[in-house]
Amino acid sequence: MIQIKLPEEEIAGVPLRNHMLLAAGILGTTGASLKRMLNLGAGGVVTKSIGPKAIPGHHGPALIPVDGGLINAMGLPNPSKDFVEEIAPLKGEPVVVSIFGGTPEEFGTVASWFPDAAAFELNLSCPHAEGYGASIGVNPRVVRECTEIVKTYNKPVWVKLTPNVTDIKIIGKAAEEGGADAIVAVNTVKAMRISTELRRPVLGNVFGGLSGQAIFPIAVRSVYDLYDAVDIPIIGCGGISSADNVLEMMMAGASAVEIGSAIHDSVNIFSEIAADLYSKDGIPAEEIVGCAHV
């Protein structure tokens, strides 16, 4: 297997310790859990999505394991502005703050609370929160306007896209036109399960989003399509659980990756992958980014 070197420069404006970040929504609710993941080998961390008002989230069950992954319908639970104090001790660390809102103005308001963020990740892709996420992230104009307003806070802006669209390239281009520094592809895929014994949906919210190894091929295809459509870095996300997955995502066009559901199986996933992925004699990652394109 190919091995690569650790990054020597910033990726999409963020000084990552390696090419792997903790994805939003996984152990990102407290400063302590974010610090723990950095200590366990994550090259950077993305926080739980923070919005303009505190939300308790959907009632349970909110997370269920399925073959090849997990389905969740958390409903964007978050403490809103109180999260500023929670992550204050992480100033100077590679912490990307995930934010959401129902309008461009709300995105701007939330961004204004976090002057110490290494970057912002715009959640325009959650498939199970009415009025937020994918419900507005399917509109290119809104994606562009949300990106533009957050860019005024002089931080790198990453825009996380939903795969639940007809043409993800159009949404990626809109983010780039708004000044995005990177595209994150992708969030979860619309999904649900029904209990045949109870004759009703398993999730409290009925519908949710599928993550994990089952969506890895969808994420690879999305990154591959976006690489031909935009000229900014792409962060691959969706079902990554091995060093070979990281390499495949890079060959599709990703400059870095985010890992989430694989932590369900091993909290040490970052160090485990790093042991296989990196070598002092490895090649620069830039040599393989997008190399699968013909």
Rank of each mutant, 00 (worst) to 15 (best):
Arg144Glu: 15
Lys169Arg: 15
Thr147Val: 09
Ile171Trp: 02
Glu145Arg: 15
Glu93Asn: 01
Glu148Met: 12
Ser135Lys: 00
Thr162Ala: 02
Val142Cys: 02
Val66Glu: 05
Ala117Thr: 11
Pro115Asn: 06
Lys169Gly: 11
Asn154Lys: 14
Tyr132Ala: 05
Glu121Leu: 06
Glu121Phe: 09
Asp167His: 08
Val96Asp: 13
Asn72Ile: 07
Gly101Asn: 03
Ala134Ile: 04
Thr152Tyr: 01
Glu86Cys: 02
Leu161Tyr: 03
Lys155Asn: 10
Ile71Asn: 10
Glu105Val: 10
Ala174Pro: 12
Trp158Gln: 06
Val66Asn: 07
Arg144Asp: 03
Ala88Asp: 14
Gly92Lys: 12
Val110Thr: 05
Leu63Gln: 07
Gly133Thr: 06
Val96Thr: 13
Trp158Pro: 04
Ser80Phe: 07
Asp116Val: 01
Thr162Phe: 00
Leu90Thr: 06
Trp113Ala: 02
Asp82Gln: 14
Pro79Asp: 13
Gly102Ile: 01
Leu76Glu: 10
Ile136His: 11
Asp67Cys: 06
Gly133Ala: 09
Lys91Pro: 00
Met74Glu: 12
Ala174Phe: 11
Val97Arg: 04
Leu90Ser: 14
Glu121Gly: 05
Val142Ala: 13
Val157Ser: 11
Val165Ala: 02
Lys160Cys: 11
Gly131Met: 01
Leu161Arg: 02
Ala73Ile: 05
Glu148Trp: 03
Thr152Asn: 08
Glu86Met: 02
Asn78Ile: 14
Val143Gly: 00
Gly101Ser: 07
Lys173Ile: 15
Ile71Leu: 10
Thr109Gly: 00
Val142Leu: 15
Val142Asn: 02
Ala129Asn: 00
Val96Asn: 04
